[in-house]
Computed example of a mutant assay.
Amino acid sequence: MILVENVHKVYPDGTRALKGVSFRIEKGEFVGLMGPSGSGKSTLLHIIAGLDKPTEGRVLVDGKDITRMNEDQLAEFRKNNIAFIFQFYYLLEDFTALENLVLIGQLAGQREPKKRALELLNFLRLSHRANHKPYQLSGGEQQRTAIGRALMLKPKLILADEPTGNLDLEEGKRIFELFLELRDKEGITFLIATHNQEMTKYFDRVLRIRDGLLEN
């Protein structure tokens, strides 16, 4: 599902965020990405998501070289293949949980987005909160809503950057168990950046990055 080959990232100020990173992740794997702050985790996730370009090297997602795509091609590819889950939920505050999901389907031209959204909220155990706005939801409920939004277009790959960083340990465990259920049910591949050592038990394997390099 993911092939990263000799990826470097140098920012205009000369900062070398990535220094020749290479690895592969097979379809259906549940993989952790761990390392200290500033190690390159977020940069790497953004490049795999097509939100940033490497200075050197290439990234293939589901066999497609995304580093050769223009912005329009990337946007279309992301829509059909990749979802990104952030530490901060970025829900639309004036919209209910249901509306936050439906909007994504509508923007993508999805048929019956409300039906899909209601199915997801039921799966996420949020049916009873469908008509609540974000400020009325707990942190865990907001993150589950954000997960539902990410699932609206049936992605093959989910990239998550510290998705439990704002949650307590028990709620974080529930989120990871939900991710595993999704992997088993829908065959989604996951790459999850986290600082939390407690979560390593959930991963098939862990990639560890430090100073822009993967550790052996």
Rank of each mutant, 00 (worst) to 15 (best):
residue 67 T to E: 09
residue 173 K to T: 12
residue 204 D to F: 03
residue 24 R to C: 11
residue 61 V to L: 04
residue 109 G to W: 04
residue 192 I to T: 07
residue 181 E to W: 08
residue 1 M to T: 10
residue 96 T to K: 02
residue 67 T to C: 11
residue 122 N to K: 15
residue 100 N to V: 13
residue 22 S to V: 10
residue 21 V to Q: 07
residue 48 I to P: 06
residue 210 R to C: 05
residue 182 L to A: 06
residue 201 K to V: 13
residue 67 T to H: 09
residue 91 L to N: 05
residue 146 A to E: 04
residue 31 V to P: 00
residue 212 G to L: 05
residue 88 F to M: 05
residue 147 I to E: 03
residue 135 Y to D: 13
residue 23 F to H: 05
residue 70 N to C: 08
residue 94 D to V: 07
residue 163 P to R: 06
residue 30 F to Y: 05
residue 80 N to P: 02
residue 171 E to W: 06
residue 67 T to S: 10
residue 56 E to H: 12
residue 175 I to H: 01
residue 12 P to G: 01
residue 5 E to C: 01
residue 174 R to D: 13
residue 197 Q to C: 00
residue 216 N to F: 03
residue 38 G to K: 04
residue 43 T to P: 08
residue 23 F to S: 10
residue 139 G to S: 12
residue 161 D to W: 00
residue 188 I to N: 01
residue 91 L to A: 00
residue 122 N to V: 08
residue 170 E to Q: 11
residue 145 T to R: 10
residue 106 Q to A: 09
residue 73 Q to C: 00
residue 169 L to A: 14
residue 93 E to C: 02
residue 131 N to A: 00
residue 200 T to V: 15
residue 53 K to E: 12
residue 127 S to R: 14
residue 29 E to W: 05
residue 133 K to D: 09
residue 56 E to G: 03
residue 11 Y to E: 08
residue 74 L to G: 11
residue 93 E to P: 06
residue 200 T to A: 15
residue 35 G to D: 14
residue 75 A to D: 14
residue 125 R to K: 15
residue 95 F to Q: 13
residue 93 E to W: 06
residue 100 N to S: 13
residue 134 P to Y: 07
residue 26 E to H: 08
residue 121 L to V: 06
residue 33 L to A: 00
residue 108 A to G: 13
residue 118 L to T: 13
residue 103 L to D: 07
residue 73 Q to R: 08
residue 83 A to H: 02
residue 23 F to L: 09
residue 174 R to F: 09
residue 212 G to Q: 05
residue 104 I to T: 14
residue 38 G to A: 09
